[in-house]
Measured scan of single mutants.
Amino acid sequence: RNLTILSLPEDVLFHILKWLSVEDILAVRAVHSQLKDLVDNHASVWACASFQE
């Protein structure tokens, strides 16, 4: 069985995303439609995003 980041529970993905910069979140968003939906549909992803580079 192949395990990917998409195999992780949504709460784990949120925990990972909250540590990323805006640039990295946008890069993750571009990788897969499921990740794009996760980022686009949950404001909590952006609430913790680091807007300082």
Rank of each mutant, 00 (worst) to 15 (best):
R29Y: 03
S44P: 11
C48D: 11
S21P: 13
E10P: 08
S7R: 07
V28R: 01
I16N: 00
C48S: 15
A47R: 11
L35G: 03
S7K: 12
L13C: 00
D37E: 12
L26T: 08
I25S: 02
K36S: 02
S33W: 07
A43R: 10
E10D: 10
V45A: 15
V22L: 14
W46V: 07
L20Q: 01
R29M: 06
D40K: 02
N2A: 06
N2Q: 09
D24C: 03
P9N: 01
L26W: 06
I25A: 05
L35I: 11
H42Y: 08
L3F: 12
E10A: 10
V28A: 02
E53T: 08
S7G: 09
L8M: 08
L20W: 03
I25T: 03
L20V: 07
F14T: 14
E23A: 13
D40M: 01
F51D: 03
H32F: 02
K36N: 02
V12S: 01
F51R: 10
L13T: 14
D24V: 02
L26K: 13
S33I: 01
K36L: 05
R29T: 00
Q34D: 07
L17S: 01
D24E: 08
V45R: 13
V31T: 15
L35T: 04
V39F: 02
N2P: 11
Q34L: 08
W19Q: 15
D24Y: 06
N2I: 05
A27L: 05
A49V: 05
I5F: 10
L35Y: 04
D37W: 07
Q52W: 10
N41W: 03
T4M: 03
E53V: 06
V12P: 03
L38I: 15
V12Y: 01
I16G: 03
S33E: 04
K36D: 01
D37M: 15
K36Y: 01
I16W: 02
V12D: 02
K36M: 00
F14H: 09
L6T: 06
A30E: 13
C48T: 13
Q52N: 09
S44T: 09
S21W: 02
D11Y: 06
E23D: 14
T4D: 13
I5S: 00
L35Q: 01
W46E: 13
V28T: 05
R1L: 09
K36R: 14
T4N: 13
H15G: 12
S7V: 04
F51E: 08
D24N: 00
V22E: 09
H15Q: 08
S33R: 11
N41A: 13
A49E: 12
H42L: 06
Q52P: 08
H32C: 15
A43C: 14
L3E: 03
A49W: 07
L38H: 12
L8P: 04
W46A: 09
I25V: 09
W19T: 10
Q52E: 08
H15T: 07
N2S: 12
L13H: 05
F51Q: 11
W46N: 12
L6Q: 07
S7F: 06
L3S: 12
H42I: 13
L6R: 01
A47W: 08
V22Q: 10
H42R: 11
A27M: 10
I5M: 10
